[in-house]
Simulated scan of single mutants.
Amino acid sequence: MDDQLALRIRLFREGGQVKPEVADFVTGELASLQAEGHTVTEESAGMLTSHLMMALTRLLDGAPIEQFIADDQVAAELAGQPEAVGRARAVSARAEKDLGAALPESEVNFLALHLAVLAQRPVS
């Protein structure tokens, strides 16, 4: 993880926008992606990081998570990305186990889109 992405996480944590356990969980997920050889930087994973931290925080706070207007379209785009969908489901399962917050299907799909984009980048 580069310094800019670490700074993003630190600002979310120190600013009180996310719970410390959420920041720790997301940091662990990013470390796993990096350990697999993915390039995990502010440029490649900044939006993924922010989205996952905010979604998990909203779930833990009991706030509603709105469904995407184009859920069917997103699911269709992901049809050719089974690895990204599988990883997103695994992240959701770990979030439920570790944090008590399972991502709804629309959030799993959105996370899968982020992961599909990350997977298309050259492996370091």
Score class of each variant (00 low, 15 high):
Leu33Glu: 06
Ala95Met: 10
Val26His: 03
Val40Leu: 04
Glu77Tyr: 05
Met54Glu: 01
Ala23Gly: 05
Leu7Gln: 12
Pro82Asp: 08
Gly86Asn: 04
Ser124Ala: 10
Arg58Pro: 02
Thr49Gln: 01
Arg58Gln: 06
Leu103Glu: 06
Gly62Glu: 05
His114Asn: 07
Glu96Gln: 15
Leu115Thr: 12
Gly28Val: 10
Ile65Arg: 07
Pro20Asp: 12
Ala112Lys: 08
Val123Ser: 12
Gly80Val: 00
Val117Ala: 04
Arg8Gly: 05
Ala70Ile: 06
Asp24Gln: 11
Asp3Tyr: 07
Ala93Pro: 07
Leu99Tyr: 02
His114Val: 13
Ala63Gly: 05
Leu5Ala: 12
Ile65Gln: 11
Ala6Thr: 15
His51Trp: 00
Phe110Ile: 13
Arg87Lys: 13
Arg10Lys: 11
Phe68Ile: 02
Leu48Val: 13
Lys97Tyr: 03
Glu29Trp: 13
Leu56Val: 07
Arg94Leu: 14
Thr49Ser: 10
Ala63Ile: 07
Gln4Trp: 00
Ala102Glu: 11
Leu11Tyr: 04
Leu113Tyr: 00
Arg13Glu: 08
Asp72Pro: 02
Gln120Cys: 01
Ala45Phe: 05
Ala76Thr: 15
Leu7Glu: 05
Val85Glu: 00
Glu21Leu: 07
Ala93Glu: 14
Thr49Arg: 06
Leu30Trp: 08
Asp72Phe: 09
Asp61Val: 04
Met53His: 03
Ala101Val: 10
Asp2Ile: 15
Leu5Cys: 12
Leu33Cys: 10
Met47Gln: 09
Pro122Val: 08
Val91Ala: 02
Gly100Asn: 11
Ala45Arg: 02
Ala119Lys: 02
Ser106Met: 11
Ala119Thr: 03
Thr39Asp: 07
Pro20Tyr: 05
Gly80Trp: 00
Val40Cys: 06
Leu52Trp: 09
Val74Gly: 04
Ala31Phe: 10
Gln67Thr: 15
Ala75Cys: 01
Asp98Gln: 13
Leu48Glu: 00
Glu43Pro: 06
Thr49Met: 03
Leu115Cys: 10
Val91Ile: 15
Gln120Asn: 12
Ser44Met: 07
Arg87Val: 09
Ala23Val: 11
Ala6Lys: 15
Leu48Tyr: 00
Glu29Gln: 14
Ala55Met: 15
Leu118Asn: 05
Glu105Leu: 12
Leu118Gly: 06
Arg89Tyr: 01
